[in-house]
Each structure stands twice: as C-alpha cells, then as structure tokens.
Amino acid sequence: MVDGYFFEDDLHCRSELTVAADNMFLGEGGCVAEEGLLEHVAQTSAAHIGHIRKMEGQSVTLGYIGDIKRAVFTPPMPAAGDTLHTKLTVVSQVGNVTLVSAETSVDARVVLTCRMKLANENEGDAR
C-alpha cells in the first residue's frame, strides 16, 4: 500500500500510493475502505522505521500495529486512480514502540488524520 516513500528527517517523512484498479481494499462503491487507508499509514510508518534502522546499521524487524487513535475519515474515500499523499510525523518513541501521527490527502483534500502506534520486534525475537 505504498508506492513512494520520501525521507525528510528522523521524525518526518512522506509517502504516496496510486490506487490500482485491483487494489484489495477497494469496496463495493469502488472506493478504498477505511482499513485500506490505515494500512497505507501503517506501511508508511513501517517503511520509515525500517529506513532509519537500516541507516543505523540495524536489521529491519517485523512491525505490528499497536493501536490506532483519533482516526478521522473524511469522505468521499479515494477511488481507483486517485493518488494518496501522506505526511507522517514521529510523535514519540519508547523502546520498540513508536507513536506516529499521519495526515493523508487526495488532491489536497484531507481524507484521513490519525495517530498510530507501531510495535517492532526486537532483534532476535523468536517468531
């Protein structure tokens, strides 16, 4: 759910996704379901956390969505062919838990704002 990832600094990045006609999150009305937008934010966060770990010479570990807060969706939801633009900010990080805030827009219209926590496995965690 991410086509493009753009690193800005350790606390900020941007990402993009052009919704393909066969995107698995397209609902009946031909629009991306809310969970699809959340997955887009989660994968943006994962890309950012992974990028920073690689820059620091650490291995990239599996991440999980810890929780989602203050999610506000503003219809109409994106459709096939639309491009999502997301701005992500790392709000805080404690150990392997990262709290991010995200704003996703289509054609400069905000469709989602939310906060999300990602918990990353520690290196060497048994799977």
Partner: peptide
C-alpha cells in the same frame, strides 16, 4: 503498558516541551 507508556511520553512532550528519554524511564 509498553504501548500506552508512549502516550504519556508524547503527552509530556507536547504539553510541557520536555522529552522523557527512554533510558530515564
């Protein structure tokens, strides 16, 4: 828990401008 601890750290940072460093927790 470890997930909500991050919320406290974020809250203190946003409200008081003080960053609680992980090693200090």
């Amino acid at each position: 828990d470890s997930l909500s601890l991050v919320d406290m750290v974020a809250l203190v940072n946003e409200e008081f401008g003080v960053e609680i460093k992980t090693p200090d927790l």
